[in-house]
């Protein structure tokens, strides 16, 4: 009985996480259908209106529909999360795997560089990178990817190290497989689970960092509907009209919650050591 209740609890969190993430994906893909209005359409005469049947979340300082902007914002956030994590994995996984597999001075140097990057507060590093790369969502994606490379590299390295000690790797070597073959055919496929978990949680970080960058005015340039950018512009108007600040913030929180829950559930399922 107790066991089932526990399973249900776990299951429920996973369902909630999956549901929230799915909602985000649906909003991202189906934005034109769901939005009901042009996220960039300005109506200066109808600015800062409270929620109504026509404008579910009210309007912003230019009279733009906040619901439409929040929905289109999902597309932007999801895109940033996806691309930056792909970038981080593309760079971090080979680097970490190589460091773990080769060991020695390469491992030491690579990991010290990763430590050095990791020691910077992420948001500050991202601000600087965006300033250096020039404005635009692309710079934000690259910056977040770079910030996340050491995280992926560390996890990959640890996973590779753990797998290298397993007997089947020795067996493969004894059978005359090359280093490359051992790494790609035997070690890496068994390392993907922890990396996948890390990347899912990283999605949440990416959304927060993008929003944080836009909040500080260093992210996605206006008028593109970025949740953080909306929140940044809202600060001037929130005393007069709280809606402009409440809804984008809620959207960020919900998206981040979804990815965190999903990451937790995946960790439970995929990582046998934590399965009890």
């Amino acid at each position: 009985m107790k066991r089932r209740w526990r399973a249900l609890l776990r299951h429920r969190l996973a369902i909630v996480g999956g549901g929230l993430t799915a909602a985000l994906v649906v909003a991202a893909l189906g934005a034109p259908l769901i939005a009901r209005d042009d996220p960039l359409g300005m109506h200066m005469a109808a600015s800062l209106e409270p929620p109504s049947a026509q404008h579910w979340f009210g309007t912003d300082q230019f009279g733009r529909d906040i619901w439409a902007r929040v929905v289109y914002g999902a597309r932007l956030s999801f895109g940033v999360g996806l691309l930056s994590m792909l970038l981080a994995t593309a760079a971090g996984l080979p680097l970490g795997a190589a460091a773990g597999y080769l060991g020695g001075p390469f491992d030491a140097l690579a990991m010290r560089v990763m430590d050095a990057v990791l020691a910077f507060p992420a948001i500050l590093l991202a601000i600087g990178l965006v300033a250096a790369l020039g404005p635009g969502t692309g710079s934000g994606i690259i910056a977040i990817g770079i910030v996340y490379v050491p995280v992926v590299a560390r996890v990959s390295r640890a996973a590779v190290l753990a797998r290298c000690r397993e007997e089947y790797v020795d067996a493969a070597r004894a059978l005359g497989e090359t280093d490359w073959g051992v790494l790609t055919r035997h070690v890496l496929p068994n390392c993907l689970a922890p990396v996948l978990v890390q990347v899912t949680v990283g999605f949440a970080s990416a959304i927060v960092i993008e929003a944080g960058l836009s909040f500080l005015g260093a992210g996605t340039p206006p008028p593109a509907p970025s949740w953080g950018g909306m929140l940044n512009e809202a600060r001037q108007y929130m005393a007069a009209s709280p809606c402009v600040a409440v809804f984008p913030g809620l959207a960020i929180s919900i998206a981040v919650l979804g990815f965190n829950l999903l990451g937790d559930a995946m960790r439970d399922v995929l990582d046998p050591r934590l399965r009890r």
Partner: peptide, 21 residues
């Protein structure tokens, strides 16, 4: 800049905003 951009769209001028610190 955002309002200017919206106005220019009415005559078919597509203005991309590049925001720098």
């Amino acid at each position: 800049a955002q309002v200017f951009q919206a106005q220019m769209r009415r005559i078919g001028v597509d203005v991309a905003l590049q925001v720098y610190d």
